[in-house]
Amino acid sequence: MSGPVTLLVNPTAGQGGGVRVAHEVAARLRGRGIEPVLAVPTGPAEAAGQARTAAERGGVLAVVGGDGMVSIAVQALAGSDCALAVVPAGTGNDFARTLGVPLHDPAAAAEVIADGTVGSVDLGRTGDRWFGTVLTSGFDSKVTARAHGMRRPRGRMRYNLAVVRELMALRPLDYTLTLDGREFTTRAVLVAVGNTSSYGGGMRVCPGARPDDGMLSVTVIGPVDRTTLVWVFPRVYKGQHIHHPAVRTHQAREARLAANGITAYADGEFVGPLPLTVRVAPAALRVVLPAR
């Protein structure tokens, strides 16, 4: 890999193991003759500044963390010549999964940085916000909001508890969707717009999404009751939910979502209330991919 390498570390990733993983990756890279710059921010604002500095420096910005830290990096790197590499050390790691980076193996991730090839992937964009994986609205965004507001338990169990609590308050919502200029209304419990297929640690909510086809994949789960959603939702991990008659999928280059009282999240991070418009930005991000 040519050019400088910056390791942007989320020190809280992996329940505090992010710095340990970063030092392991740095040692591996030094053994390959690469001297990385280690950046350990104290918070999101400092992380964003360090990502912008890396974008100006060029080369590779390697994120040691999960999808939240990847999201911060994407805001700085979109449209730049600096390539994003990912050392998965978070809870979900969906962007790393999309790139084919080995999970739970820092040494293998370091080898991707050293030996990988640089390619380009699409991004989603709403307003001035970029995202790499999935934008969510409805039941799933409510679960994310609730999980973010909970201090305990940590890790996956916090998300699982948030799912149970939101199921108790489940109700269909009235959406107006406009896909590439075609407007229609629908009742749904959630609408997801995917640049890639998965979110939430491997839930393939948009299984037809590809990050290099110049399209967004839109999944609409209709007005199902609580029992049906409990039956359908586990099938998201294999993308099999799309075979249920209440689920519809679409493709579009631009999607406008409107519904009252709903907040959208993308890459697991707060975006803002509906209505909003999402567009695909083809080949907007340079990424480091495993060598083939």
Results as ranks from 00 to 15, higher is better:
A107Q: 14
G68E: 02
A145M: 05
A73E: 05
A27R: 14
R248E: 11
G3N: 06
A26Y: 03
V236I: 15
H104K: 15
V205H: 09
P234E: 10
L161E: 08
L177M: 12
G66P: 06
G127K: 13
A22L: 10
A45D: 15
A54D: 05
N260T: 13
A54E: 01
G208T: 10
T219I: 03
A259M: 02
A258M: 05
R28W: 07
P172F: 01
L257P: 05
V60H: 00
D81S: 14
H244F: 10
L123T: 14
G272I: 02
M69W: 05
R256K: 09
H250A: 05
G261N: 04
L289K: 14
R154T: 11
R146K: 14
V236S: 13
P102W: 09
P36M: 06
R156H: 12
A107T: 14
L257V: 11
A266V: 08
V193G: 02
N10L: 09
A83N: 14
V70P: 08
L7S: 10
R52F: 01
H148P: 01
A147S: 13
L38K: 06
A192G: 10
L190C: 11
G49M: 01
A108H: 12
A258K: 10
A26R: 09
V118M: 08
M69Q: 10
A162C: 04
A55F: 11
V37Y: 02
I34A: 04
L161D: 04
R253Y: 00
V191A: 04
V232M: 14
D94S: 06
V63F: 00
T144G: 00
S137F: 01
L8W: 04
P11S: 12
I72P: 01
T249G: 00
E24C: 10
V218F: 08
V287R: 08
H244K: 07
A13I: 05
L7K: 08
L8V: 03
T196P: 07
T219V: 13
V236D: 08
R154K: 14
